[in-house]
Each structure stands twice: as C-alpha cells, then as structure tokens.
Write a protein that binds this DNA or RNA. Structure first.
Length: 415
DNA sequence: TCTGGGGTCCTAGGACCC
DNA sequence: TCTGGGGTCCTAGGACCC
C-alpha cells in the first residue's frame, strides 16, 4: 500500500499558526508582487476564488473586508515544512518528500486494518506539533492515493482508504479526468474531445490509443489507475537536483539592458550560493527573457539560450560571465521584457567530474576560486544580508571595459 | 492598469555516425 | 531519372507537478 499525506491549504495554514484571527476567515496568500492568489483557505474557495486568480479581480473582496490577502512568507513556510516532514518520517521506513507540503509513504507489508490508525496518528501529530491540518489517503498506487486524499479534502474526512476494486471503480467513474494526478489541462482537453471525461472512461480506453494521445506518462497513469504501480518512488526522490533556477516577473516592462543585466546577476548570484551550499557545481547556464504573455495583441518573444561551460563550476563570477554572454546573444533593445530568469543546469557533486582536455584550467586557479567563494559565503552568512556582491549586481557593470572587471567583487560597507 | 516561481520529464526534429 | 537503414545524441519546446 501507498500513503499520501497532504497538508490542507498549506501556506494559509502556516499563516494561521502565527495569527489565530485568520481562523474561520476567507484568506489567500499572494505570489511575488502580490500578483495572484497561490493559496486559498476553504472559505476563500467557497467565495469562488480560483488558484492563480490575479489580485485585480479579487481586490473588491479585500476592500469590502470579505477576504484577507497576505503577502507570501517563504521563510515561515519552509520552517513549518521541515517540522511536518520530520513528523511524516516517523511513520514509515520509506517516506518520499514529494513537495513542500506532501509526502508519499511506502507501507508495504502493513495490514490494511492498521491504516486508519496510522493516518489518524499522522493527522493528530501534525496538528498538535505543527498546527497544520493534514489529509491522508491510502491505496494501491500513488495516483490512487492522491485521489483518496482529494476525496478526504472534499468530504472533510481526515483519512480515506481505497482498497476494494469495486469501490475504486465506482470512485473513478465519478472522478473527472482533469482531477487525475498527471493529467494536466492540455491533456484533459485533448481527452475530452475523444469522449474521455472521467477516470473510468480513461482506464476503459485501449492502451495503444492512450499511448498515442498522452505518451509514456499517460500509459503510466493508466496502469496506476488500474492498481498497477508504475511511478517509481525513487524517481520522486533524486539524491541531487538537476537544476537550480531563479526568475522574476517585473512590475513593469523593461527594455533597459543594464537593468535586466543587474537583475539577472542577482538571480545568478543567489543560485550560485545555493549551488555551493549543495557542495555542487554546474556545467550549463541557461538565460531566458519573456515579453508580457497577457498582451496577446502584441508579438510574443521568449528567447532563451544555454551556455556550456568548459568545465563545471560553482564560481559566482564565472557563472555571471556565462550569463552575460548568453544575455548579450538574446537581448534585443527594441523589445520590452516582462520577465527574466536563469537556470543553472547539469549539476554534479564537486570534484566528481573529468576536466576538459582542450581547455585546461590549472588546479591552483580552481582552488583559489573555490577558496574565494568559500570566503565570500562565510562573510555573507555571518553578516545580516549579503555585504559582498558582484559589482554588476549593483548596476555598476559599465565601470570597466572588461568582463573581468564588471564581474569582480566589490565591498559594500553597511555602515 | 493590474496576471508567480521552482522544478521534472518527455518528445519531435535535426545533426551526425557507420 | 534513379539515391538506404539503423542508430545515437542534442536541443528547444511542451506538459506536468506543487
């Protein structure tokens, strides 16, 4: 059996742990720039607020006092997430931390009769120790466990166990296809035109037709709904991340190269620090820009480029140089951009790589760069806020002609 | 007027190999 | 005029997840 524990309305529940006045009220947590709702309390859902709904469409509810809108507080959510996941890990030898607010449990060998009590214990402990309400679903596969927990949330039951094939069949005939884990909006629309409206329609469909319509992942979902486990537990729990990224939507359109470069330098610096904290390095830097996708009457541009490094690196200055090299290739001064981002990709553990044959970098260069980064990380970690930054991060990239100067470090005294 | 961010994996098509 | 087949690797873009 597989279990899925999922926190209810996680970000809103986190906010309620520090502000009891939010209990029983319609609450949403907003995205960056307070742009749109990314978490909703049950009361907010009852008001008809949709996931991702923009602020300008719900402002009247906030102004009239019917709805509380909060800016996001990721430090708080991260802290509570750690507490909740620690609790999850007490209840099974194999627990997969699937996301910030949910985890899968491998309960192989546990008798079905014991599941209700295990689920109840998880819910009780998360509520008493972390202040977070949780719903637990059990079934034969991850996809069915997801459906079980969704049923729990909709019917206000804390624990739902789906074991009996007849009952599962009945549930699937009442589950809209777009509610199935792994079937997104696009695929759901495609299936709908094929007459596949429910999960039951889906499993009754010929597997070759499913493969043709939805690819290999759709086949896995097809099996999972028929109680055949297909989605590997380990696949969700990679020992090392493949990529690290940071991006922002700007509050206005920007066509100024220096402003965009400065922001991308900041994103790259953050990602490089995260990379080094993982004791890792990367061998690709991907830079991308985007125009405002909601301005449908204007031409849309989503340029992106991948810069391959001669050898993997975790050095902020090298990664920033690569980022600028990429930006220079895709940036068009005639276009105003709404969003920019970078991705550090092809991540590997430090010193687990073979150096490039034709672009040798002497070891002492690597070492001194590594030591420089270590020193900077330590200084920034011991002070409140980053006191050491790249000059280009402060919009000073024009000072020198050479990229070496523009991405050199500058000391900024807080006093 | 105003519309998020961080990830993973798959697929199709092109380039290249023998 | 007529011009193979089987394979790998890379990349951009698409789709999905929370």
């Amino acid at each position: 059996m597989i279990g899925l524990a999922d926190c209810n309305n996680f970000f809103v529940s986190c906010e309620r742990t520090i502000n009891k006045d939010l209990e029983g009220r319609a609450v949403v947590v907003m995205s960056n720039n307070d742009g749109c709702a990314i978490a909703r309390s049950n009361e907010a859902k009852a008001l008809g607020i949709k996931m991702g709904q923009p602020m300008f469409e719900i402002r009247h509810l906030v102004n009239s006092g019917q709805l509380v809108a909060l800016s996001s507080n990721y430090a708080l959510y991260h802290e509570i997430s750690n507490v909740v996941h620690k609790i999850f890990h007490k209840y099974a030898p194999t627990v997969i931390d699937y996301s910030v607010d949910e985890a899968f449990f491998d309960l192989t060998g546990i008798p079905v009769e014991a599941l209700d009590e295990i689920g109840a214990n998880i819910c009780n402990e998360c509520l008493s120790e972390a202040g977070i309400p949780v719903t637990v679903g059990f079934s034969h596969t991850k996809t069915l466990a997801k459906i079980a927990s969704e049923i729990g949330k909709k019917s206000k039951r804390r624990v739902v166990t789906l074991v009996d094939p007849v009952e599962i069949n009945d549930i699937l005939s009442r589950t809209p296809i777009n509610d199935v884990w792994g079937i997104g909006r696009r695929t759901a629309r495609k299936l709908y035109f094929e007459g596949i409206h429910t999960a039951k329609n889906y499993i009754d469909c010929d597997i070759h037709h499913i493969k043709h319509l939805t690819g290999i992942n759709g086949v896995k979902t097809h099996n999972e709904l028929r109680m055949i486990p297909c989605i590997d537990l380990d696949a969700c729990n990679r020992p090392i991340q493949n990529s690290i990224s940071e991006s922002r939507t700007f509050s206005r359109d920007i066509s100024d190269y220096e402003i965009i470069k400065t922001r991308l330098t900041t994103y790259t610096t953050h990602c490089a620090t995260r990379l080094r904290n993982m004791n890792s390095q990367c061998s690709s830097v991907i830079v991308y820009l985007a125009t405002n996708r909601f301005h449908t009457n204007e031409s849309q541009q989503f340029p992106s480029i991948e810069i391959r490094l001669n050898q993997p690196s975790g050095s902020t200055s090298l990664l920033v140089e690569a980022m600028i090299q990429g930006l220079d290739k895709i940036f068009d001064p005639a276009i105003a951009y709404k969003k920019a981002g970078i991705v550090l990709a092809n991540i590997s553990p430090i010193r687990a790589t073979t150096p490039s044959l034709f672009d040798p970098i002497e070891d002492n260069t690597v070492d001194s760069n590594h030591q420089l980064m270590q020193a900077i990380d330590e200084i920034n970690h011991s002070s409140s806020g980053g006191v050491l930054r790249l000059a280009s991060q402060m919009g000073l990239g024009k000072i020198g002609e050479s990229s070496a100067l523009s991405s050199s470090f500058q000391f900024r005294s807080k006093k």
